[in-house]
Design a protein around this nucleic acid. Sequence first.
RNA 1: GGGCUUGUAGCUCAGGUGGUUAGAGCGCUACACUGAUAAUGUAGAGGUCCGUGGUUCGAGUCCACGCAGGCCCA
Length: 1148
Amino acid sequence: MNYPEYKQPLNYGQVGTDILAWWKQNGIFEKSVSTREGKPTFVFYEGPPSANGAPGIHHVMARTVKDIFCRYQTLLGKQVNRKGGWDTHGLPIELQVEKELGITKEDIGKKISIEEYNQRCRETVMRFKAQWDDLTEKMGYWVDLDDPYITFEPEYIESCWALLKKLYDKGLLYKGYTIQPYSPAAGTGLSSHELNQPGTYRDVKDTTIVAQFKVKRDEKSEQLFSNVQLDEVPLAELYGDGAAEPDVYILAWTTTPWTLPANTGLAVGKNIPYVLVSTFNPYTHAPIRVVLAEALVGKYFSEKGKDASFADFKPGDKVLPWRIENTFKGSDLIGINYQRLFGQDKGFPAFEGEENGFRVINGDFVTTEDGTGIVHISPTFGADDFRAAQLAGVPALLVADDEGKLGPVVDRTGRYVAQMGEFGGRWVKNYDGHDDSGSDYKTLDESIAIRMKGDGTAFKVEKYEHTYPHCWRTDKPVLYYPLDSWFIKTTAVKDRLIELNKTINWQPESTGTGRFGNWLENLVDWNLSRSRYWGTPLPIWRTQDGSEEICIGSIAELSAEIDKAVAAEVMTHNPIKSGEMTDLHRPYVDDVFLVSPSGQPMYRETDLIDVWFDSGAMPYAQWHYPLENKAQFEKNFPADFIAEGVDQTRGWFFTLHALAVMLEDSVAYKNVMANGLVLDKNGNKMSKRLGNAIDPFATINQFGPDATRWYMIANAQPWDNLKFDLNGITEVQRRFFGTLFNTYSFYALYANLDGFQAREFDRISYSDLTELDRWILSKLQSLIVEVRGYYDGYDPTKAARAIQDFVTDQLSNWHVRLSRRRFWKGELTADKRAAYETLQECLVVVAQLMAPIAPFFAEWLYKNMTDGMREEAVAKNTPLAPESVHLTLLVEADEARIDKALEERMELAQRISSLTHSLRKKSVLKVRQPLQRILVPVFNETTREQVGKMEDLICAEVNVKHVEFLDDTSGVLVKSVKPNFKRLGQQYGAKLKAVGARIQQMTPEEISTLEKTGQLAVEIDGEAYTLAPDDVEIRTQDLPGWLVATDGPLTVALDVTLTDELRQEGVARELVNRLQNLRKDSGLEVQDKIQVTLGHQPELEAAVQSFGSYIREEVQALALNFAPDLTGGSVLEFDEYTVPVQLEVANG
RNA sequence: GGGCUUGUAGCUCAGGUGGUUAGAGCGCUACACUGAUAAUGUAGAGGUCCGUGGUUCGAGUCCACGCAGGCCCA
């Protein structure tokens, strides 16, 4: 047997297992790299996963994408090294350890030492490595698992240090502060993760204030004082005689009144409309004018008070009279100065830069959803505030502490500092748990509100319920508070980041230009600091006062510095030299003290660095570069290709890019694919909690890795979210893999029967092939071009769909179906050889094309198809010499064999066949009943010629004797016209409707005139038009007296006349069919010869009389006789009668 | 709240540069076929192309504003 045969259905899981074992045994992955030694490289970076949890089905998705392009490039002959990696640091690991130990961060250093804690993290982080490795293998992801980079290893950390020092030396590493969520009661900053804990956001009732900020009258603000409206109505008329001109205030709302004394700016939206309103202060009843967003006027002023009499207003009236005086845009207000709410005159401190504060600035976050459309800015207590103020050059209110160090007006315990006048020492919120139950107890917010009411600077004070984040540990409200951090000055290279990003090929493009591009446009400095324990320590040592510092770039450098410290008696000995310190993590680095040039001791900054730095540093650190392996690094930088989930856009994709630009002035990757999420079949996120997570192992086990991968890739484009439905895999398995398997089985069955073995040489020459063979080979070449194009363009979905359509629609359902007789009939003729060779070529090429996506099945198919050819191939070193499809070179399309005309006329044949089948169906004539002819109307020679060439094929497929053509001259065609709107629209524009209607009314005579003379004069609405043939599409509508079917311009008519001969042939074919069934039911092999005896039946006898030899040949009968007295045996059932039959296997 | 993204048949998806009758596969119904048979063929049912406005002779397609889902960021 030349070709292995398999039982139906094929066990795809088993194919995966078997091929995997074979790969391992023969080191195929290693060979796929080593056999490409010296060839051009394709550089791929593995984004390191974290092995502290079990892998999920979405990892199969992401890794399939990676694998596809690495395998494809290998097929192109490139060398693709794939170094694996593990991400080992970070918060999720710490949290997991804390959960398992039942501790919190506060217990670290108390209940458990940092050393023990980090040891636990180190053990935990690789806990699921075995499962990950198992999945990697089973899903067929080829990556080097033996020599991965691991981010917690000293060499890796040392590389990170070296890179940090490079940045430090370039002046790109600095210490500053940002506004972060902070828990005063716990004395610690909170990560966004901690803020996202369930229950942190709670509804609270706070005192809120709409504050009035008094505008300073100057050039900028003059527009608020003198304008048309006000001039028209004398003041006296409004407020009574002798009234002074009212002050103008800007209104701003806050839910945190305690931040008002720290206000230094007001933000407006540039394009938001604002109004100036005359009214009274509801508490002091003083006449005032206020500025607020037009959209929010209704929130503060009732309809009743609109344009009401000001003179009649009396203190105590509920309804405030008001009138709009003027409108402005936000941009008009920017730059206006106002008076500080709690100024030095009221006993509050002066501060640096004060002269630049108390201005109206732009804030792109300002909305008119709530408040007044103007946002009070206190740069030390809000992230937006901080940014907007920084952009506008508005200072923060900072005061000096006892040591002269500047800080915000709230200390780290949550109290106002002493300088804060009458409020000095007050708690911002109740962080110390003091008794606040007394009836005369006032919160700070309330005290401030009372004071402001008295000052006439409060426009509205009310309790308001809103959601506010709380510390998950202390249950106290979070403060947004300035905290020290180390930053990488990414903003310094912003333009270069943007410029180089434009050279990166993003798939999909919108992620690169949109999500990533916008992120770069709005770049802020990269906050590196993390106040944690398990991570890469920041290698910076500082003196107590921060005046001297050093950034360490290697272990050797650290050791040398320690020596200096030992000499200065800051350290007793050098733990690196003594071998005590082999790990660069905390706490060991914290126990290292260095000495500054001026002799001061230096302590390490206790921060760890952002884990994203770890992964972004992998192009360098995976080779322990820049400390060694320069050549290795340069050979593998930048990457040709990376792929991860779209959620990595601001994670790994960014850190890779940022570091590459800052360190190498280069992109880190040339092509990048951002794949979407894997959701459950209803479009919900998968989660273990909801129980809708798919187990990747069970899935691969059940369906095999190939169907799983194929489904994921073919169903939706990788960058779209995938609604993962196991039924989809079943469908892929049945429709695609099932069909492909059947096609192979079909080939194997008959090739083995014939003892046929395909060879690379000694094949039927191309020119001797039939149209059908040349057609599928032409389609195959077109497919190669198409699929290569899709892979080259990083579009695996289209590649998969093209392969799938070729296999199911073209190869299986047309070529093989029409070729079946060629395979099962008679001796191994040249035509039969041609059929085998054609199918063989198609299957081998399909195996290659599908190999990147379905590596196991492709291997199975390739080996089954070519193992018998291997020996000769190896001897002659031909393309089929490699033992594995993954070691081959992807076939190039032979463009000379692409015959577009042939492809077109085959499509015509397919459509004509389909139409004929549908006609048979309508007249209830089964395909087994031969018919005399079909009629095809043709309007031009080309169509006639094309269909003519396909006549035999069409006849065979639809079982008719002839295809006849009907041309125009016959005069029997009834035609119809359809307006060509595209052309008409361009020509007639608005007149198109009338012209179109007129065309649809064209008479047969007019159609004929248009066709013959090439033009037609018509009158529409009294105007004369001349129609050209291109203006319409002419098609056959009907053939009177015939049964017709149409498909666009194509029409087919079927001759349903039955002659005696046709009838007899029909009976003969029925008989063949019944006998074939009987053969099959009797369990005969395809090659068994038989002897048949039939009972007496006139119609059958007549049919046998005329078509005996045909019948005998079809059913492989040596004899076919009638016996009038035949009894027993089987019975053949025909439409109208039954006949006894005896079937014997003939000997010999 | 912002950025990006998706929305077309029961389900999964196609639908260059606008062209009047919006397609495919699966599923469903009916019939046929039965030496690829857990396959195949033919026919049928199934659509406010998320909504509203606009541009246009003409919008699934272009524009604006919304709605819903998703991701990231505040």
